[in-house]
Amino acid sequence: MNWGGWSDFFAMGGYALYVWGSYAVTLGLMVMEIVLLALRGRSIHGELGRARKRGGP
């Protein structure tokens, strides 16, 4: 283990802004990509479902 406690961990030796700024943006962007993809998938399935109901493509 590397850290004396959680406060040491969050402080990252004084580099908290840089380290957590990197990790937070990375996580945020990856989550955003997944969400946008899921919405896109839902949208196309919804559209196809409606087309099916109308009786054809």
Partner: peptide, 10 residues
Amino acid sequence: GEAYRIIFIH
């Protein structure tokens, strides 16, 4: 120091 830990993403 701890700044290098950005390497695990970068």
